[in-house]
Amino acid sequence: MNTLDKSSNKIDYKGEGFKTKNLFNVIYVEEAAFKYPITKEVLDKYCNLQVITIRHYKDVFNRTNQHFQIQKQYQSLILAVKDKPFLYEGPQVCQNFGYPNFYYTSFLLNCIFDCGYCYLQGMYNSANIVAFVNVEDFKNSIEQESLKKPVFLAVSYDTDLIGFYNIIPYIDYFYGFFKMHPALTVEIRTKSGNQSFYKTHTALDNIVIAFTLSPQEIIEKYEKNTPPLKTRIKAIKTALDQGFKVRICLDPVFINPVADHLYEPFYEYVFSEINANKILDLSFGFFRMSKEFFKRIKKQSEYSDLFLDEYCLNENVISYPKEYQNNIMTRHYQILTNYMKKEKIFSL
């Protein structure tokens, strides 16, 4: 909030004075997006925010001279109409959980959370959030693919749909569609503690809520704006109580002398709170990133100290040396298999 002293016209520029109270700095709206109901709902909800009309979201989102970290503090929302393609093949660096037809889709580009290790910092020029408003086009495209073969669809990879639920409830818009297409298995990955969706919708057999969990110390250090571990556990319990299928994602796992000591008590805590038998499966992955994204992040003026560590390059992916990974994974598996069968643990 601006602390404008009207008598002197002076602004407290050294305090948090100029930081806006709103969730978004401004809302950019594509000319073509105005006619969609989601646009109207968002503009009604945030009627106090400045609206700037744009021709195409890429005119704003793809500008080359954006400062990712400052924009993250003053995120803007861009409402846009997505063109084809609506579905992408699942990337090699992600688990497919045994599904041969693995796809992902992005209703949103970017995330409201601010994780220091996130590849999105290197993937996009902008920290602003693009929200696509033409949900029917997404449905048509997903339907065409899922009628041909059973599909595993990750809908919350480059973002957090449940974290964004109070802004645009995409999963509400798609719930009926997912219900009508049982051959489509949908994974909604989240770090959010928001329980509204689980409380207001009946669980479906083909929806999996995948909660990303980390030790509280890692959350505090690297997962800015995300809810604490306890809140996530609470959300997991609610989802399970409501009959939702729940996946636990231990991803990314870090290897360093400090982090190494955090995981054992973390696993103990998680499985003392959650009945492991009720969990669908567990995914496990070490910190990894494509070489290009890693390089782009290191060119920015600010980045997490994680990017100063030494890593290995293997098939264009930067991560820990394989021997470290094997040693640490063996140790982690020893603990995790106390709670879960090995067949239910997926790793890359």
């Binding site: 404008l4 100029f18 744009i54 005119d59 400062h67």
Partner: peptide, 12 residues
Amino acid sequence: RDYYPDVFCGKN
């Protein structure tokens, strides 16, 4: 052609 400065200040 459109240009978009990022306006984070001067909120008044």
